[in-house]
Design a binder for these strands. Sequence first.
DNA 1: AGGGTATACTAACGTCCATTAGTTTATGGT
DNA 2: ACCATAAACTAATGGACGTTAGTATACCCT
Lengths: 211, 211
Amino acid sequence: MTLVVASKDNIPTTAERILDAAEDLFAQKGYSATSLGDVADRVGIRSPSLYNHFRNKEALYASVLERLLVEFSKPLLEMQQSSELSQERILQWLDTIVRQHHANPNLARLLQHAALSGGPHTNEIIERLFSPMFQSPDEEELEGDYFGQLSRQGLQPWAVMAFNNLVMSYVTMAPMYRDLLGQDPFSEEALEQQLALVNTLLKAVFAYRGD
Amino acid sequence: MTLVVASKDNIPTTAERILDAAEDLFAQKGYSATSLGDVADRVGIRSPSLYNHFRNKEALYASVLERLLVEFSKPLLEMQQSSELSQERILQWLDTIVRQHHANPNLARLLQHAALSGGPHTNEIIERLFSPMFQSPDEEELEGDYFGQLSRQGLQPWAVMAFNNLVMSYVTMAPMYRDLLGQDPFSEEALEQQLALVNTLLKAVFAYRGD
DNA sequence: AGGGTATACTAACGTCCATTAGTTTATGGT
DNA sequence: ACCATAAACTAATGGACGTTAGTATACCCT
């Protein structure tokens, strides 16, 4: 796996510009529908020049993935080690991932492509993104009553998945939102409404008792 | 658009077998990553023979889409005309689409591909699947208090989208469920749990008042 | 100044793909 | 029996794609 170090001045290296272009294209069209010619065109070079920076198409894809996984894992890991699990923490976690995916929709899109079509790195993405969520920081049990009625039904992991999917499908389904709500899904107002929605939803689940 | 009539005896025509194969492949890999050779292989014929049944690749795709949209619109339209809008009706609607997408995950997968990558028929899918949900049957207003606190925040359409995404992302993210929950997402038990989850979630939203 | 490294380029390859043309084969109606 | 139609096949074409080889140019270190 090629490791691309971030250039500390604000002028990006060619490798970074390739990663940027490839990330957008892989996220939009998926692995096989993205051609190296497309990537090269965006960067402004010829496709064989890509091989000066990445061994081949698959290595480029792996690098794109690696950069995204690092970017997305960082704040969640920090949050996980900072304090005890609680309903406030879960609300905060939800707020964080909504903002993260809003700021960069590409990881959600890439993961969605991988989940739909398979591909060699699918399991790795799933493991690195989601298994941290299914174990508490210091080996404690996570079978508390955090999700109210849902926990009592044994649906706590299902609820975690559901809220994740809610957040990710917002960005993977963005064109639908644009069409049906008549609003840019990546505007600031839309972010606020999405935050209000998931927040209210989660609080409703916390508050709900009995059938 | 080629119209393929269902053969009433239980032996499917070649055109139907092509549609079946193409539906699976388009749903899994998306439009451009699916090759006519793949489709033909599944049917057990050579790819040029496909042209005896469909004008070209795009027409085949359009036919696949048409069949799915008809199949999925039918029960929802019936339900929409049968009775007044109410919270029970919404619960029933949710139950229906969960079962529908569980029985045939391909529409959700195709729509997800379309939403991610664009493509000529994306808007049509969105319109035909979702705009019926944003208007009541007989020109009534849909601004009632069906979603409790969420309606009061002006998030009613957002809530409709959210529950839809919840259902569809369950099937588009099925491999994730398999990995993290260690369970076949298309088994009967999984269906029951998914039904229980969305049901509880919706009831929680109905019941939730105030912040 | 000179030589090495990094990085761009053009040319070319083999493969796969959608599509067309032309041919064969079986079936069903007159 | 005959012929038309449907539906399969093989062969071929033109384009796109990933990848390799070989070459040119600019920068850095001594």
